[in-house]
Nucleic acid binder design. Sequence first.
DNA 1: ATTGAAAGGTTAAACGATTTAGAACGCTTA
DNA 2: TAAGCGTTCTAAATCGTTTAACCTTTCAAT
Lengths: 339, 339
Amino acid sequence: MKKLTLKDVAKQLGVSTATISNAFNRPDQLSANKRTEILEACKEIGYTGPNRAAQILRKGQSNIVALVLADSLDYMVTDPVANTFIQGVSRVLRENQKHLLLYAGDSDSITDVVDFVDGFICYGAPRNGSLSTQLNQQSKPVVTVDFNLEGRPAINIDNEKASYEIAKAALRPGDRAAILGLRLIDSPSTCRIYDSPLLDAESSITHRRLDGYCRALKEMGIEVATDWIWNLPENAGMYAVQAAREVLQSSPRPDVILCMSDIIALELLQCALTMGIDIPGELRITGFDGIEEAARTRPYMATVCQSSVEKGMEAAKLLLSGDNTSMSLPYEIKVGETI
Amino acid sequence: MKKLTLKDVAKQLGVSTATISNAFNRPDQLSANKRTEILEACKEIGYTGPNRAAQILRKGQSNIVALVLADSLDYMVTDPVANTFIQGVSRVLRENQKHLLLYAGDSDSITDVVDFVDGFICYGAPRNGSLSTQLNQQSKPVVTVDFNLEGRPAINIDNEKASYEIAKAALRPGDRAAILGLRLIDSPSTCRIYDSPLLDAESSITHRRLDGYCRALKEMGIEVATDWIWNLPENAGMYAVQAAREVLQSSPRPDVILCMSDIIALELLQCALTMGIDIPGELRITGFDGIEEAARTRPYMATVCQSSVEKGMEAAKLLLSGDNTSMSLPYEIKVGETI
DNA sequence: ATTGAAAGGTTAAACGATTTAGAACGCTTA
DNA sequence: TAAGCGTTCTAAATCGTTTAACCTTTCAAT
């Protein structure tokens, strides 16, 4: 009861293996009659088609795309931005009969899969520098999202410009402003930045956001002090709560707080409301991302809306197209009621 | 600048291909000296190890496990129960150097991957009957979770018993009781069951839950009318809201409402509180699953706690072990404050 | 001295396909 | 009749490994 192979089938039908292969893969290489005849015979004797493992070796193509996630899976599935991104990718891959290999979190090597996947979609800058190097050294296509890899196409929004715009919309002359940032410095817990060295600035979207905020602040003549910038190691509620408390208890309290994600902004809003602070009267807040929850708060959040699903879809499309040109997606400033 | 192969390396080092292969795969087949010598030479000339695609064909093993999700990915990543499950699976796979192929949603065929994956973990009964058939007809290992497949090991909790117990804890003699169920009948929207035919009862966990509820109700001498049982097509807030409204507006209103998931129960609780109904004074509510949010409500939810992460981990372990025995995981009845 | 087993390698046949070069065939045309 | 051409099919090389079977040496035990 062994599994049938192309050879077995060829022998049974009295034709060559090439013909069977062509019947499945290249209809133009044989007459339509013969083809249907063969396919039906196959169905009859229970041959479901060429063995995929053999195909992968021979063709050098597997229809498997690896999705490399910078953060651990726990985080990815919890964060609405990340998980809608995965949905977008998954949708396009499915439409194109490709499969999704999930390569999540602190993985330190892609050598295990590089031989057989057709390409990589990387979401967020890998925590592990060596992964970036490995990705760059191999020749399979790579599409990066929310970060950049030398010579590879990237999908992103213009984070600097968006941040500048939302900040500009929130700021008034003479404001005291604070920033709740994300992954700006290397620290395992929430803390102020002071003069800690910033992480590799070029490839990180949060650095671009910081740039945007700073440009707006400078334009408004507002000083940016690093002890008014907080850093969260991850975009998760627990880190946000701590930052929110600290910043709200500082005196004098800022008039505006610019948050690098909606998750942070929502937690901050919650905190401020509990403390009886009037929003936006006494304090203005901006978020970033435009997650669904941000549209449901009362007052509802001022934020930068970007479509994560679309990001995922475009990333997948770009990878499949083999194109090598980066892409800047549109975003929308939502003024909301918190500024 | 072609990629190095085992053969190239063998030629360069002046040994046979088998020896190189053994150096990588079977240390006991050659002297330790030769082995380290070979491995170092490989590193030097830039050979990172045997090509995986070829290995897959030759060994018939890929280290890739397919996770087949019954529901669409959109739903999976939204639902905390499902996504913690995925985390559990992912964690164990990673620990064992296996890779995760995500096969989500309404896929209708596994023929594309069956030749190269090492096995399947199926979460929830596939909506598409043919998938079950296909899974059963192929010979790779399968582990099912939250449903059963003839002859395959399953991971589950005793849903009937758990439901019986939580219902028993909630019910008082003379109660009017309603049930908010999940996927009991074939309907695209929320509605009462009446006398619609139930879906294939055996393999579905929600049917087992219904059994448990009914046993408890019967023991308490409470009649079960099918127009007091609602059915939701999916475990999502939007369906729950509608059911919640309907059941709360029915008169006379039930004294107890048994919900087949926490998502449903939370929505119902929310709805009831908004209507000014006293919980548990005027209405008792039970949930199922024990998601985090259920522990944070005020009053906090009576529910059946099961660990989804553990479920995922056990499923992966079971698959990797090759064992064929099903497993019943522990659960815990949390009385909470809603009954 | 002979034997046998163990150690350390090598050879060559799979694994199950794809694909190129070319053979065979039937037909038209010079 | 031979050459030319398009179609259909075949033979053989290839993809990059793994592994069963086999071949030498070496060495202790008889």
